[in-house]
Write a protein that binds this DNA or RNA. Structure first.
Lengths: 250, 250
DNA sequence: TCGTTTTTGATTATTTTTGAACAAATTAAA
DNA sequence: TTTAATTTGTTCAAAAATAATCAAAAACGA
């Protein structure tokens, strides 16, 4: 076993497990501990891993350029629940849209091993899925640094060139009476673009967003086929949506 | 058994198994180890395989798939020199292309505070420049995980919609006789697309790439206006380029 | 056929990689 | 704070792989 091969395997292990030990690697790669140490030192000086006493760690935490602006942390339990449900809907071979919402971002970890194609305008989603089984298609256009996503006219045109089985979208507000609403027009534009090119539109929104109206009201409820939410959602409210022919998962 | 035949079989084996050993090949192809070594050396210089001690690997497996922050570490002094020169050429208000080379990536740190617009197909460049003064425009299309960049037909079309003052591009090889060459056709396509939409094409390449021919030769030297390289570059070689009307910075 | 060129193989010297031993440094525990 | 246990850096030697040189064999063209 030569260095490039070991390097590849070590890197893969570090990525998977987060951290590794010298002994563990020496055992696994059938070589001496000192050789492993040398490998780790070399890799660390290249910035590939973070060297620790007795092993190495994923550099990702420090290097991974952008963490999702911590919005992911709030309400995380409910969001994971929503994402688990949504992930179950995705079959191998499908093409899906994912927009730049924080809930939608959480979906990444549940679909890493699916053989699907994801079309997205979210930079964090691309970073997350780039090293996974998923094939990623990135929407081109102006980058909006605040939202860490691509938006605008060109972006919408790009989306219009594709067709997907499913679209997984986030919104800032949803109500039976006024439909979907958002904080900004640019986000609304992308949501519309993706929705109109997908067979089924899935809205991922935790229960705090139900029956709330925000700045821009941009689409009727009929745009969506499925709403995925958490168990805290009131049954009465959900019934409102179901009466309009929408499937509800919670 | 002649060289073309061995070459074909070796390539096939490398593709299948990911990595091969000299002994293994000598045994299988009924020839001596030294002949195999010669074959491997020749193939490696064409960029078909990655040479290792005792064998060879698939190119994709050897080049680290994640974080190419490491690649920037090798030859970093020379690369910084190149980037400093290149950065000085960029004036506020300009629009520039940046491709997905590792040298080009290093340019990011030198242009963070410029009021310019960058159009790029490189994910690391986007991550790096997203929180800076620079306005970023991302090229859309299929994401190539190995290169951490967007490539392909759609990507090239996207580039064709824009015009830039300058393009900063990396290549794998350059020679006075055969022009520009690359390891893969997809990279070559993006380079061409950007070059044809820019007023001035700047080639960022350290001296190790001068007078080297790689797998795909895709453009004549006349495509570029400026070559930026390091002080190690031989004056004789640079003169060759200057005679063809190219400006050389080093 | 002969002479030339190309390819292959063998030998030796050099380089690279690996492993072992031991002192120095770091961490954890008392 | 001191002691013990790990881990690491350093030096050296052995093993493996490579480069370089030269000779033999095969292929080629006249």
């Amino acid at each position: 076993m030569n260095f490039p091969n070991r390097k590849r395997l070590i890197l893969q292990m570090v990525e998977e497990k987060g951290s590794v030990e010298v002994k563990e690697l020496a055992d696994l790669l059938q070589t001496s501990e000192i050789t492993i140490r040398r490998d780790l030192t070399a890799m660390a000086s290249d910035g590939l891993i973070y060297r620790t006493h007795g092993g190495a760690m994923k550099v990702g935490l420090a290097t991974n350029p952008v963490q999702f602006v911590n919005k992911t942390a709030v309400n995380s339990e409910n969001k994971d629940h929503i994402c688990r449900l949504a992930a179950q809907e995705i079959k191998d071979g499908e093409v899906v849209f994912m927009d730049c919402g924080s809930t939608v971002f959480r979906l990444c970890q549940f679909i890493r091993n699916k053989r699907i194609q994801v079309i997205t305008n979210s930079i964090p989603v691309v970073n997350e899925l780039m090293q996974s089984e998923v094939t990623v298609n990135l929407v081109g256009g102006e980058v909006d640094p605040a939202r860490q996503a691509v938006h605008g006219l060109i972006a919408n045109e790009h989306v219009a060139r594709y067709h997907a089985h499913k679209a997984f979208l986030g919104v800032d507000g949803i109500s039976a009476q006024h439909g979907l609403s958002a904080h900004s027009e640019t986000e609304a534009g992308m949501t519309l673009a993706m929705a109109s090119q997908a067979d089924d539109v899935y809205l991922l929104c935790d229960s705090t967003k139900l029956e709330k109206d925000k700045y821009v009201q941009f689409a009727p409820l009929s745009l969506v086929q499925v709403i995925v939410t958490d168990p805290q959602a009131s049954a009465d409210v959900l019934k409102l949506y179901q009466q309009q022919g929408i499937r509800v998962l919670n």
